[in-house]
């Protein structure tokens, strides 16, 4: 299956493409909105900051197209944060596909920020995206900002505060962790996304 991987200026779209290839999919790196035409699945990875990523998405015409997209979309890490209304990181308006605001992780004694490493997933709502992933399974996180646990949250994670680890609403999904670097748990999430038929 072909999957459009949006180049939002992050450095990790290469590893996301490799992960898709390991699952037998055919990633296509897309640098402008026209490239999304006819693609059955879209992935929005992102490493870096929200504001420059939004600026780049605007410049390349994605901001108008992504909300009108009719195929499944998966945001990863900052790419998931961009799905929400706003991010505190650079105080920037985001895509607004999911309600809520992304906030800075507060940290605290013994709680380092950025939140970096393997942390456990808490299942919040059943979803075909989480099939085969056990409660308490570990995924690899690297981030300093996080999305709130809202009605769209299907799996959560806790680092001092509780935040959304996986979200899904309609054809929109997001993972705060890096599935491409989360061993078999990450591969399963990506594979589930490739098979996902949102109602």
């Amino acid at each position: 299956m072909e999957v459009a991987v949006i180049d939002a200026g992050g450095a990790n779209f290469g590893s996301v493409c490799y992960a898709l290839e390991r699952l037998g999919a055919a990633p296509r790196v897309v640098r402008d909105a026209d490239g999304l035409r006819g693609m059955p699945r879209v992935l929005l990875p992102g490493v870096g900051a929200a504001a420059p990523a939004m600026a780049l998405l605007r410049e390349r015409g994605f901001i108008e197209v992504l909300p009108r997209l009719e195929v499944p979309l998966l945001g990863i890490c900052v790419g998931m944060q961009l799905l929400f209304e706003r991010s505190e990181e650079g105080d920037v308006a985001c895509l607004g596909l999911l309600p809520g605001r992304v906030r800075k992780l507060q940290g605290g004694p013994g709680l380092r920020v950025p939140h970096m490493g393997w942390n456990t997933l808490e299942m919040v709502a059943p979803s075909p995206l989480l099939e085969g992933i056990a409660a308490g399974a570990s995924a690899y996180f690297v981030h300093g900002y996080a999305a709130p646990v809202t009605a769209d949250c299907i799996a959560a994670c806790t680092h001092g505060e509780r935040f959304a680890a996986v979200v899904a609403r309609g054809r929109i999904a997001g993972a705060q962790f890096h599935p491409e670097r989360s061993a078999s748990v990450g591969a399963r999430l990506l594979d589930n996304f490739l098979r996902w038929m949102p109602a």
Partner: peptide, 29 residues
């Protein structure tokens, strides 16, 4: 990067933003 699905770091020989970009774009985390 093509085969490994856990994070990895590359050290040694990185002296500039361009050096780092090449390594990160090749798939290092």
């Amino acid at each position: 990067a093509r085969l490994i699905d856990i994070p990895f770091c590359v050290a040694g020989g990185i002296r500039s933003v361009e050096d780092a970009r090449a390594v990160l774009h090749a798939g290092a985390d």
